[in-house]
Amino acid sequence: SDFTIRIGDRTLHLKNVSEEILKILEELLRRGIDFEELRKIVEELIK
């Protein structure tokens, strides 16, 4: 499924993301992860 994360004025667009990855990202966001850290993790996950 497609997913968009907005943190402040920044946006991260994800396409064809599995439910498992979404759950991980949601947990990281709940813990207050930094946007740049989140972006790096996402890039690793979707390689």
Rank of each mutant, 00 (worst) to 15 (best):
L12G: 00
D2A: 00
F3C: 10
H13D: 04
L28D: 03
E19R: 06
R31H: 11
I7H: 02
I24T: 11
E36G: 06
H13L: 12
L45A: 06
S18G: 06
E44H: 11
E19Q: 14
E43I: 09
E44S: 12
I41R: 09
I41H: 09
L12W: 02
E20I: 06
E36F: 07
L45K: 08
L22T: 12
S1T: 14
L22K: 14
L12K: 00
L25R: 00
I24R: 13
L29T: 08
L25W: 01
R39N: 14
D34L: 10
L22Y: 09
H13W: 02
E27K: 05
R30W: 07
S18A: 04
K23A: 15
I33T: 11
L12M: 09
G32K: 08
D34F: 05
T4N: 09
V42F: 06
N16W: 04
I24Q: 13
L38S: 01
K40R: 15
S1E: 15
E37P: 07
E26G: 07
E20H: 10
E43G: 10
E19L: 10
E19V: 10
E19A: 11
G8Q: 03
F35C: 01
E43C: 06
K15H: 12
E19N: 13
E37F: 05
I24K: 13
L38E: 01
R10W: 10
I24M: 13
I24N: 08
S18W: 01
N16D: 10
I41C: 10
D9K: 04
F35W: 09
E36C: 05
D9H: 04
K40Q: 11
I21K: 07
I7F: 07
N16T: 03
L29V: 09
I41L: 11
N16A: 06
V17H: 01
R6P: 02
K15P: 03
L12P: 00
E36M: 05
E37D: 08
L28R: 06
K15Q: 07
L28V: 12
S18H: 04
L29H: 03
K15F: 06
R31Y: 06
V42I: 11
L28C: 03
V17D: 03
L12Q: 01
L14Q: 01
K47Q: 08
L28K: 09
L29G: 04
E19M: 15
G8M: 02
K15V: 08
I46S: 10
E37N: 08
S1V: 14
L25H: 00
L12H: 03
E36Q: 10
E26D: 11
R10V: 15
I21S: 11
H13C: 12
R6E: 11
E19Y: 09
K23I: 14
L12A: 01
L22Q: 15
L25A: 06
L28N: 07
G8N: 05
K15A: 12
K47W: 07
L45E: 09
F35V: 05
E44I: 08
V42C: 03
T11P: 01
E20T: 13
I41K: 08
E20Y: 08
E27Y: 04
V17A: 05
L14N: 00
L22W: 12
G8I: 01
H13K: 05
K23N: 12
L14E: 01
E36L: 04
I7Q: 02
E27M: 06
G32L: 07
V42Q: 02
E19P: 15
